[in-house]
């Protein structure tokens, strides 16, 4: 959709967007915690069998063996959760970064003097008021430019009726343009 029409102020972020983002992060943490728990449960749930000596050695060995187990479990947790977070951030924040990116491209085209369109929005995009303000500004600028061009074309049309007042009418149009552009500072 194209954001062109003015409407009452809207929030920067939809409530649903924020809640979905937080829910996805929580889901990633929960998945990581489950994986971490599963690894420890797998290692620690082996039955203690044998006599006193066997159990003593099993527990003592386990406490020595604990360091690599913890290292691997934490590594799996960190990799799993960080991977999920990276994807949540890339896909979730794309709804903010996307409009900014498109706005940057439009501004680049404006600076280059090439024809541009208004900043378009995709479904679920956030920070809509920013794009609206930008499109309003460009719209106003185009409105002014069209008025200046129209003033010059009106003067040209009057020139077709006769040369007597042609130059004077053109100069009048130019003075109107100078007055109109003087509000830009």
């Amino acid at each position: 959709m194209n954001v062109t029409a003015a409407s009452p102020p809207e929030p920067m972020f939809e409530r649903g967007y924020r809640l979905r983002f937080i829910a996805r992060l929580c889901l990633a943490f929960a998945a990581g915690a489950v994986a971490l728990y599963a690894i420890f449960y797998f290692v620690l749930s082996r039955p203690l069998t044998g006599d006193y000596s066997g159990v003593f050695h099993a527990l003592r060995n386990l406490s020595v063996f604990l360091r690599p187990v913890i290292a691997v479990a934490v590594l799996v947790y960190v990799l799993l959760v960080c991977g999920a977070i990276a994807s949540v951030c890339v896909y979730g924040l794309h709804k903010v970064a996307g409009p900014l990116y498109r706005m940057e491209r439009v501004m680049e085209e404006i600076r280059g003097g090439s024809p541009t369109r208004t900043v378009s929005f995709r479904e679920g995009d956030q920070i809509e008021p920013l794009a609206r303000a930008f499109n309003d500004w460009i719209g106003k600028l185009r409105q002014d430019r069209n008025r200046w061009t129209a003033a010059m074309e009106d003067a040209e049309r009057e020139c077709l009726q006769g040369d007597a007042t042609c130059r004077a009418r053109m100069e009048q149009a130019l003075r109107e343009i100078v007055a109109d552009t003087s509000r830009y500072r």
Binding site: F29, Y77, V81, C82, C89, V90, V96, A97, L100, Y101
Partner: peptide, 20 residues
């Protein structure tokens, strides 16, 4: 989707640092 590494990647890095 990965249009702004500073913004999207930066946020992912900060949260990942907390997780790590």
């Amino acid at each position: 989707h990965y249009v702004n590494p500073r913004f999207q990647g930066g946020a992912a890095l900060v949260i990942s640092a907390v997780v790590a």
